[in-house]
Design a protein around this nucleic acid. Sequence first.
DNA 1: CATGATTTAATCGTGTGCGATTTAATTTAG
DNA 2: CTAAATTAAATCGCACACGATTAAATCATG
Lengths: 145, 145
Amino acid sequence: MSQSNPQLNLDNQICFRLYSASRQVTRLYQPLLKEVGLTYPQYIVLLILWEQDGQLVKEIGERAELNSNTLTPLLKRLAERGLVTRSKNPDDERQTFIHLTQAGKTLEQSCACIPAQMMAKAGLSMEQIQLLKQSLDVLMAQGQR
Amino acid sequence: MSQSNPQLNLDNQICFRLYSASRQVTRLYQPLLKEVGLTYPQYIVLLILWEQDGQLVKEIGERAELNSNTLTPLLKRLAERGLVTRSKNPDDERQTFIHLTQAGKTLEQSCACIPAQMMAKAGLSMEQIQLLKQSLDVLMAQGQR
DNA sequence: CATGATTTAATCGTGTGCGATTTAATTTAG
DNA sequence: CTAAATTAAATCGCACACGATTAAATCATG
């Protein structure tokens, strides 16, 4: 427990907790997502499309805070699985529209129970959830490129 | 903003905030870590070694919540850069000891200023930090395999 | 003391993340 | 109207994460 530089102590590093907690949450989701055959980032992208179908790669990227170098391969995998379609915008061929297929839309029903199950797994009270949200929002507000 | 299933709304998903915030923090670290030529996970591993030099891969893994399939390549990169050494434990040749080199020890001084700079960047009050820590600790307490 | 179980790292394969660059299409300026 | 600048997506390269397996060493049990 003794250490030369207390500033560097891992237990004091909020960053490490955040990094661990984020991966922990992904792990908690895994058994639920495995049933529908999705990875966690794929699930995030589908959440975005279930909110609003027919978005551009760029729009999905802004929502998920991911760039095309991550999204393009991910979306191609979703397309291969028949959950979305990728089509050029005829009015601006630089853009690619992502649309849900019927299978992609249907999958939303299968995922409807996930949030409630996750809330139970996370073991946080509503109050704690609210506090956590607030803190994370402050963090996210920094460095809005 | 309207949506069929409010349960799935991304804004309500604490998971998404956590996932975004974690990557946001990594991005905030990057300019600082770039100066010392480290990635964020490499920095985490060095923090662990600066706390206690000469640990087994397994021990580092327990601290960082990472397995050998992630750690082995990462540690090999740190070894190639001359920051650590990897050596078999002669008393139990299944185990590999990781020791800091002089360069690895010296690097701690160069990193001493990072936490304070990060605190400033994060823009959280001490109170918010404490609340965030508590919430994350509750999350981490779930599913201790 | 021999053999099966366990432990520890390493390895393999897949899927992110992300900096950097490329390509193609569109917009802007001169 | 055309060349330069900008934009959107794709591509490339590298470094994680992690499930699954493998290989080697040690332990446990009969």
